[in-house]
Every structure is written in structure tokens, then in C-alpha cells.
Nucleic acid binder design. Structure first.
Lengths: 158, 158
DNA sequence: TGAATACTTTACTTTTTCGTCAACAATGTC
DNA sequence: GACATTGTTGACGAAAAAGTAAAGTATTCA
């Protein structure tokens, strides 16, 4: 169970944008510098986020990237899902081993586990917005703990 | 956010072992056949599980693998952790971009998110044992849903 | 209108992960 | 004790992910 590089960098770039004063954006170069990644790589990540409608871009000399919505309206769940292949069928196509299709295609004891896992993760991350992540670590930590305690993840109730 | 190949295959191989009658094991060849993966690959996975003390192995002509404990005493959480690098510091070492160390090493808004995520996932998966996964998919699904509803993941209470 | 800036898009290179192979070591059987 | 069987281990090759490069397109400003 791991976070991919794109997910990590995507989240970080968005936090940078969320820290900007209202109406001000950042260029790829600036984002790259602030996150310690190359401009090219930042470009790739932001392009995906742009396609997903999470950021909007402007070309030209006054161009750059801005959040498409206020940070409080962008959830971490939404961000992560931009980069992932959340489809369960897709999962079963991989992991087919040396067979053409997964040997458990018809009846799989693991699929329910993955379902619960996906639901749980989605549920937890959908409660966390970008706005909550722009502060210092200790503060973010405190707030998230509170959030988590107030609304425990009853993932499967949906 | 993804499950790695080793985690998937590890889980599947263990379910096969859990389905065996008490006291009977399976050889690598048998496990590979039943899971549609190569013997070599099964060998690698089972070796890791053996190191972790989840299965025990026997060489020679009567050899093979067996669960080291009853299936009801082996949690999915424990299995997954065999294959993953659950350390948060390790996470920060990767994702350092073009820098030597991550630019947010001292103060990172993402770390709390990962903490909560890890805790939650661990908590959910620690409630699921191998014994619950040996049945048919629909049955497994039903039981896990019940479990989840009965004990929602109040992950951060620990 | 032309030059500078900055995003866009595709192709390529590098790195990491995954899977395989082959030689080795241990166990049981005849 | 020789042989067949089975797990162990490390090295290698293939596949996927990550990151880079470069050519292209849109925008602004002089």
C-alpha cells in the first residue's frame, strides 16, 4: 500500500497554490523551485490537475497556474483520484500472473477487502481539504486528529 | 494509492494455504499453479512470508509450506506489513525531487495526512483475518460489511 | 507585428520494480 | 549413501513508472 510519486507531488504543488494570496498564481518554474522538483516534472503533474479541472492555467507572459476553486472546496480524495486508477476491474486485469486473466475472476476473496479499503481511504481523504493543509505541520496534525475523532470513518455506510 | 504486486500475491498464496485441511501444506509448485503465477515468483513471495514468521517451510521430498498459526490468528494488516515499507521517514527520503533531502523535511503539511491514512488502513485491515477470506466472494463480502458496520474505524483513538 | 514568456504535448531516457533463472542447500526415500 | 524432490539465495533481464527534453502553441507587451 503506497502513495505514488505523482500523488505526492500533485498534493504538494496544490498546497503551494493554496498558499498564494487570492487571485495570484504561480508559474511552473516557481512551483518547481518551491517543491524542489524540475520544471518539466511540475509541468506534467500540473497538466493532469488541469485536465481534471482542479487548477486552471493561463499561457503567455502573465500566465501560470491557479486553483480553480477555493482550497476549502478541494478534497485530498479528489486530488488523489486524479492520479490513480481507482477502478477495481483494472486491478483484476493486472495481477493476472502468467495467465491471461486473473484466475479468480469469477470468485475472488480479496476483492471485498479491496473494496472496503478503497472506501475507507476515500472516506478519510474526502474529509480533508486543501485549506487544512496550508498551515504548519503541528497545527495540521492537531486539526486532523480532531476531525478524525469527531467523525470516525464509517466507510461502508454509503 | 495502490496495492503492490507482492502484497496481492502474498495475500492470495496465504488464502490457498488457509484453505488446506489442518496439518497439510502446499509446495511452491502447487501454490503457483493454483494462483496462476510462476513457481519462481511464488517462491520469492513465500520466502518473505516465511521470514516474517507467517508461514513455516520444510525442505526435501515431503516439504512445502504451511501456515505458522491458525488462519483466524493471522490478520491482513500483518500480511501487508510484511511487504511494505511502512516507515514514514522512509517515505520522506523518497520524493525528495531533485534535492538531496525533501524540501519539507522540517515542516510538512502532508505528513499528518499520511499518518492518519496509515493508521486508518492498519486499523481496518487488522480486523480482517485470513479465516474470513477463505469463503466465496459474496459471503466474504457480506461478513466484512457487517464487521465494518459493527466497528467503524476510529483509527486515531490509539 | 515580433519577441519574450509560459503552458502543451509527445517522445525519449532513466530508474525502479517485478519476475525469471540457475546454482545451491537441505530433507526424505530406497 | 545416492538420488530425487523441495526450499533458498543471489544475479539477471523485462516491464512499468518516473522524470527529462524538445518542439509546438497561445498570450502579452512593446
Amino acid at each position: 500500500m503506497r502513495i505514488t510519486a505523482q500523488e505526492e507531488y500533485g498534493l504538494r504543488c496544490l498546497i503551494q497554490l493554496a498558499r498564494q494570496p487570492d487571485g495570484q498564481g504561480l508559474t511552473l518554474k516557481q512551483i518547481g523551485e518551491r517543491e524542489g522538483i524540475s520544471t518539466a516534472n511540475a509541468g506534467k503533474v500540473l497538466w493532469l490537475l488541469s485536465n481534471a479541472g482542479i487548477v486552471k492555467s493561463a499561457r503567455g507572459i502573465k500566465g501560470g497556474y491557479m486553483l480553480a476553486r477555493p482550497p476549502a472546496q478541494i478534497t485530498v480524495s479528489e486530488i488523489i483520484s486524479v492520479f490513480e486508477n481507482a477502478d477495481l476491474e483494472e486491478h483484476c486485469k493486472n495481477f493476472s500472473g502468467i495467465q491471461e486473466v486473473c484466475i479468480h475472476n469469477a470468485d475472488c476473496g480479496i476483492r471485498p477487502v479491496l473494496q472496503i479499503l478503497n472506501e475507507t481511504v476515500r472516506q478519510v481523504l474526502s474529509q480533508i481539504t486543501l485549506a487544512q493543509l496550508v498551515h504548519h505541520e503541528c497545527e495540521v496534525s492537531q486539526r486532523l486528529f480532531q476531525l478524525q475523532r469527531a467523525a470516525p470513518a464509517a466507510a461502508m455506510s454509503a
